[in-house]
Design a protein around this nucleic acid. Sequence first.
DNA 1: CCATCAAGTAACTGTTTAGTTACCGGCTCG
DNA 2: CGAGCCGGTAACTAAACAGTTACTTGATGG
Lengths: 225, 225
Amino acid sequence: MNDSGGNGEKKRSRRPSAERTAQRDPERTRAAILDAATREFAENGMGGARVDAIAERAGTNKRMLYHYFGDKEQLYLKVLEEAYVGIRTAERALHIGDRSPEEGIGELALFTWRYFLQHPEFLSLLGTENLHRARWLRQSVRLKELHSHLIGELSDVLEQGKKQGVFIETADPLHVYLTIASLGYFYLSNQYTLSTIFGRDLIEPTHLNAWERHIVHVTLASIKR
Amino acid sequence: MNDSGGNGEKKRSRRPSAERTAQRDPERTRAAILDAATREFAENGMGGARVDAIAERAGTNKRMLYHYFGDKEQLYLKVLEEAYVGIRTAERALHIGDRSPEEGIGELALFTWRYFLQHPEFLSLLGTENLHRARWLRQSVRLKELHSHLIGELSDVLEQGKKQGVFIETADPLHVYLTIASLGYFYLSNQYTLSTIFGRDLIEPTHLNAWERHIVHVTLASIKR
DNA sequence: CCATCAAGTAACTGTTTAGTTACCGGCTCG
DNA sequence: CGAGCCGGTAACTAAACAGTTACTTGATGG
């Protein structure tokens, strides 16, 4: 079976590391594990997630998982960090200060809602992490400054709105952000129990659109003069 | 060791079932298991909860747990049902239609916030159940009508407010309730990650009181004409 | 005083799980 | 060409787990 010893053709031996990657590709394996882990943790929580299941979803095996990430807890933390980096990075691209204050806040509300809608795994991970009282997030060194930018930019927009007389003086940046996040998070993360007890399918497009308008309406109504 | 055979005194044999319960008390054992299970499920989720841990917390053992509740899943459903019955029962005692529409809505918002604050285990259970897409709640036959009363009463108050010209015509009962619940749920259930990333201890009384006022303010601002 | 039944204990069982170890195959560099 | 290393496989291990079974204890009724 092994006939490679006979022909010293050196074929491709000059290539650095770009084409023979069809079978062996550390980067892709690593990324596949991270992606599989994100889905597994999101669907089953930290306690319910199975290491074997992650390896299988990634099309690899446990040995590689432990090789790249250490253990289950470190892998989980990596997944969580990447999720936060994802939303905060997308948020920065918004530049909510470029428009009028009112439009800026509306923009942020719309963005947050739509991001939550398109990334249910992010909401799930937050839920799991909070069940454990931020046990792993607290250990993260990467995420300390990641969020200050958001509050800073939001604060600027609110100040401008107050100066223009369109926002009330008591409007607080953290409260505004928490309001926007609350309305999106609860509706989506609790959609299953809510749909069950109120007998209305909340994920239906009609209701989804109505809630999107509602979020913008509530957010602006709470800070407009 | 067994010397009871010698004295046929019949002592206490006339008592029906009220005093010798010091050692044996099925009702208390059942209640202890339910209470222990509520805490264990709330702290660890359905997947993370341990049957042995529940038995130990209840001061009994697994045999009794399986005797009274069948298996882990049925026990979990019982816990969830009791939690819902708890909040809906307390809600009914409010009678939000007795005051002015504005006061009624404010009352409901305050009640919901304070109930969430005093029953963190309820929020936790909701989170766990939603992680599993309401898998167990859907099977519950008891909880279908439990919630219609809330929406009905809220609807009446809103109608009255519209007639009096204090509320906007588009105010929707489900949306109003979801708004109130969102603001309370997100703040409390996500307090750990939020406190970590924003560097502010959200559970501190000062912040708690500020958020309570904020919820009432936002709710009313979103429906007032 | 013995038969019965209900409340409760504790040790056991089969399965699942996170994490480890021994091994394989092919590429690369001296 | 061969030593060694890197990406990968699969079988194993020790612990933890849900659920069961064999047993004890004590009250009651005939």
